[in-house]
Every structure is written in structure tokens, then in C-alpha cells.
Amino acid sequence: HNLTITQGKLFFHYNPKLCLSEIHKMEEVSGTKGRQERNDIALKTNGDQASCENELLKFSYIRTSFDKILLRWEPYWPPDFRDLLGFMLFYKEAPYQNVTEFDGQDACGSNSWTVVDIDPPLRSNDPKSQNHPGWLMRGLKPWTQYAIFVKTLVTFSDERRTYGAKSDIIYVQTDATNPSVPLDPISVSNSSSQIILKWKPPSDPNGNITHYLVFWERQAEDSELFELDYCLKGLKLPSRTWSPPFESEDSQKHNQSEYEDSAGECCSCPKTDSQILKELEESSFRKTFEDYLHNVVFVPRKTSSGTGAEDPRPSRKRRSLGDVGNVTVAVPTVAAFPNTSSTSVPTSPEEHRPFEKVVNKESLVISGLRHFTGYRIELQACNQDTPEERCSVAAYVSARTMPEAKADDIVGPVTHEIFENNVVHLMWQEPKEPNGLIVLYEVSYRRYGDEELHLCVSRKHFALERGCRLRGLSPGNYSVRIRATSLAGNGSWTEPTYFYVTDYLDVPSNIA
């Protein structure tokens, strides 16, 4: 807008934040220059609390790290170098490059900038070799853009010569660093050979998330399962459950009422301010606690030095998902009996873990797994792929695949051998790939016309006998059925096997 004052003059007093240069501009645009008398524009009460600059400061050096910015700028000295009290560095987070010096300023003089007072450097006698002032900004957020400017702080001049310097606002972004852990990993099994893994992005990506790394490792069953005799009275049979499938998407929606109208769909109840505040506090606490764990609990591995020492970490090797089922080394339970199943799973520490690289999504279907087997899954978020990966501390989750139908069934015939004193040795093959492992066998036998009897055969007993022995049988026709019990439950009964026990007292003698 054009402003013209045809008559009258300007009068400025007691404006401590208004620089004289701005008042002189007002004289020019209003056409009143030359009308004012000496005392109409006070030299001592206008701009006496402001830094009124008329020179431009330029930054000469900028260096960044993930949490620091090192700045240096060209030296500046007023005509009387004693008038320079120091520099004021202003900075704040700036997602967009549209910041002005006066953003967030209120009537009390406060604003949204963080201000650092910096002492002037030592003055050199040689004007050509003056030290460049600077400042190291610490405690910054990774991968965050900051708006920065600097200006001088000078003393009051009796001659009211307006001098000083100020830089333009520059924008500097800190470097990326390792992201925080992925949030809320959930693993479920939808079949006997697959596990579905879902997660949420890290709360602090500290860069642009480029991919996720998912490692999985087959877990050995508890050692007590191999040692305890679950045929003993009072000892509860062990059981394991597989990871249940995901709930429906509708039930997972946030901010939804727990109660549904019987007449149909209901609208979600909005969260109160107290609920939102509580969630923010919980989120802040979780982030602080995660940072504490990362800094205190997890110790970084030592990389190899120039002395030739090897990095103890196993090298990563990509495998196809079809090879995942046989990740671990199978060892027989008892070496003397080769027909026992290889369900003991000690994992070799030198073995390469299978892994998958996930790009542009937060889910993965891990296939080719062994049925009813526990897996430990390790999830890392990465925001750099080359020249070397920059990934987060791992988040861990466990899951067990679903049982395989008929995996616990005894394959092959049940054979028998009759000894003296009416002892019958029953023999059968253990299931080759049971659900988890076989903890015991149930032997059901009966003599024709009598009630059915049951015998429990422990895992250890089966390994020693290759089956079991029935003792003290009365003469007669017998039928026997056997079924295995694994961590997933009972298998199917075998087809009945028949044998006849004679009275050993009636056996004919070869003595003449």
C-alpha cells in the first residue's frame, strides 16, 4: 500500500525493539523526510534493546553428524571492536523451508527459537588472519532439518551509529543413524509349514526405512522333555500350542467401542483428552525405555581390526524358502538304536541362519518350516543398504507352526516275539517326523474274553527296548493296539495285532 503524509511529521519514542533503520525507511515511504526535528525521533529510546544489523554474515563451514552440527561463519568486528559482546545463534526444527525470524513471537518477546549466546573469538592483530567464530550444536535429532541463523550482539553506541551483522536463515539436516526397533511384532501360524509375521514401523526411523531383515531359527525343545518319565503317576503330560491366527481386521481397528449394538453396526467412541494424553505418555515412556535398553543392555560386537582377528559373527547367506525346513542338525536320541526319531534339535552355532529381506511392506510369510516346531524370529529395521547396512537392534518374537495331521501315527506293522515265561516283546517304529517329539506310547492289549488293559511306555523305555515287553501273560489269544502321544496330543491307534500265548508248562520236552 502507498502511504503519503502531505502535512505533519513523524514522532517515535520509547520503541526499544524498533531499529532506527526501520524508522528511516518509514520517513522515505511516507514522504516526511526532512520535516522531523532532532528530538522527534529519539536516538536513545528507539532500538536500544534490539540488534540492528546492516551487514550480512556468511557461514564459512558446515559439518553434520547424526546428532551434531558444527558451524563456522566469517569474522565480524565493528569499528570499535570492544562493542562486540558476542553472537546469538538461533535454531529450531523446520520440516519445511518457510521459516521466518519472527515465527511464534508474542507480545512478551518470546519466540519459538532456541538461542545460544556465543563469546567472540580472540581478536588477531592481523586483519587478514582473524579467527572464524563458530559453535557445535549438540543433542539434535537424527535425520531432522533445522533452520539456523546467527547475528551479532553489540553494545549501545553513544554516537548512535547503527552497526551489526546478521546471516540469512539456512537449512541444515542432520545425518541418518540406526533406527529404533520395529514396533509390535506379531507372529502367527496359518499352516503346519508357515508363519505369518506382521509389525509396525519404528517410532524413530532416523532416516528413510529402506528394508527390513527377518531372521528365523528353529528352537530346540526343553531338555526336561527328553529326561522326564511322563508315565509316572502324578506327572502331567506336557503340551505345546501353536500360535493362533490373526483376529479379523475389524476387531483390530483402534479407537473402536468394545460393545456392539445388537441391531447392527455401531460407531466408534472418540477417545477423551485424558485417554489420548495417557497414550502419549505411555508411548514416550516406551521410547525412553527402549533407548535405555539399547544403550545399557546391548553391547556392540567388536569388529575385526587390522591384526587379522576374525569377526566372530557368522556370515549372512541367503537361502531359498524351500530350504528352511531342514535348518537344524538332527541327532538321534540314543545312538545305539537307529530307529528312534531325530527330534532332539541342538543347533550348531556355526550354522548360517536363513533370512529374508523385506522391502516396502511390514509383513512376511515364512514358508518351508517344520510342522509343530518353535521358531525364534528376529526382526531388524534398516535405513541404508549400501555401502553397508545400517540397521536397528533386533526385536524378537516366537511362534510355533501348526501340527501336521497323521504325523504322530505309527507307520509300519507292530511285530512281536514270544519268549519263555510268557513274555512277549512288542516292537514298532517311532514316527519319523512327529509333531514336536514323542513323549510316550500307549499300549492297549486284551486277552479274548477279558477286559482291555493299558500300559504306558516312556520315551526312554522305548529307546532301550525298541518297544516294550509284556510279562506274566496268561495263555490265550491276544490283540494289541499302540498309539503315540506327542507334544500336540495323541496320534491314531494302530491296526490290531494278534498273537497267541501258550502255557509254557505244557511245552513238550526233548528229553527222552
Rank of each mutant, 00 (worst) to 15 (best):
E417H: 03
V329H: 11
S474D: 09
D323Y: 14
R483A: 09
E279Q: 05
N360T: 09
V329Y: 15
N255S: 08
G374R: 10
A263K: 06
L235H: 06
V443H: 00
A335N: 09
L505P: 11
S283P: 01
E217T: 15
G306L: 14
V480M: 12
Q275W: 04
A484L: 12
K233L: 12
F419Y: 15
M402F: 02
I366P: 01
S363T: 10
Y448D: 10
R286V: 03
L228K: 03
V214K: 00
G491S: 03
R301I: 04
S398F: 07
G368P: 04
A407I: 08
V345L: 12
D204T: 02
V501N: 09
S342L: 07
S341D: 12
N435S: 07
T415V: 14
D222T: 09
V439I: 12
E290H: 02
Y504N: 07
A336K: 06
I418A: 11
Y212P: 00
A381P: 00
S344L: 09
D222V: 11
E495T: 15
D291H: 02
F246N: 14
E282T: 08
F298N: 03
W428F: 07
N339M: 04
N339R: 09
S492A: 04
A220Q: 14
S444D: 13
Q219S: 06
K432M: 12
F499H: 02
E350G: 07
L277W: 09
V439T: 09
F226M: 06
Y230C: 14
T288I: 15
G467L: 07
L237M: 09
I438R: 01
H371D: 15
V297E: 02
R286C: 03
P314Y: 14
A330V: 13
L453F: 04
G322L: 14
A335M: 14
M402R: 15
D291G: 02
E420N: 15
L228W: 12
F355W: 12
T494G: 02
D503M: 05
T333L: 12
L225M: 07
V345C: 13
D261A: 14
S284E: 14
Y478G: 01
K460P: 13
R316L: 12
V501F: 13
A335I: 12
K287Q: 03
G264D: 09
D503V: 09
P244W: 10
D291A: 02
V414S: 03
A399W: 02
R353I: 13
R390S: 05
E217Q: 13
C456Y: 01
E217C: 10
S262P: 06
N490Y: 07
Q256M: 13
S398W: 13
